[in-house]
Amino acid sequence: MPIIHVKRLKKSFKSYNREQWLFEALKSLFSIKFTINEALKGISFEVKEGEILGLIGPNGAGKSTAIKILSGLLWPDSGEATAMGMIPWQNRVKYVANIGAVFGQKTQMMWDLPPIDSFYMDKDLYSIPEPEFTQRFRKMTQMLEVEEVMKSPVRELSLGERMRCEIINALLHNPPLVFLDEPTIGLDVIAKDKLRDFIFDVNKKHKTTFIITTHDMQDIEKLCSRIIIINHGTIIYDGPLEDIKKKYLTDKHIEVKLSSKPKRFAFKGCKVLEKQEYQMKLEQDTTKKPIQQLINYLLQNFEVADITVTNPPIEEIIKKIYRE
């Protein structure tokens, strides 16, 4: 059962060149200059109930615009969208009662107050019954390990703690549909893991639908069953992550730190991207030979001090898709 339908959604922004100085500001009154920026060029897709959808693409691709329209904040220029049978941007009050949203960098809790105060405000706003509120509050703070910071002002929390509170804030009223815009940006590995486990858990237990935008390949790998790649306002890929993985995530980046100077070597599928005195950056095509073999080879032939394997950034995958 699809929970969201989107059809030919279009949105463009006019950006005015605002002048700082009085004289220029006066001048601009007569000749209004603006540039039109098409953020969404008519996108269509559906989201099934209980799905975790990853919305990815480079900055300014239109992800945030799509999320803002679907969470009822923005009006589109044309096109249709329904979510849970409602049109998001009409009847905002009724609609937003049924969604949760976290917009990465911007806090939705009050800066000077401890998170618990913001949660109590939400209890009133969403009319959450007392026993449900207490039960969920206890469970969530426990799972995300933020019980101790409940009473310190938001501005004193670390980014990781704040993000976790932010997620609780968005989920306390148990919405069936949740938007997360860059939920893991700037977090350390442990905090990222906690957050992902929590999202996964909520998704399994309550069949909550999540739409997540992210730059982090690992978020996508661990959470999303399906991804949509947006670039320049159009969808360039919509489908299961597995396909993308097989087709495009064939390359891995390997960074090796050495305790002696590297010598020349040759390995099938391996390309040297960068070579310095005590370190190398390699790229391995895993369709030619698996990554494990390369690592073994490196360990046997070099004095390896440290080795890290990463996925190439999203931007490179998008470039590859374009090349086809």
Partner: peptide, 17 residues
């Protein structure tokens, strides 16, 4: 600060909120 969106996300008339 570009933080106005949060008030639109609450299920309540924005001005009253």
């Amino acid at each position: 600060l570009g933080e106005f969106d949060q008030y639109l996300l609450k299920p309540y008339p924005t001005l009253l909120y």
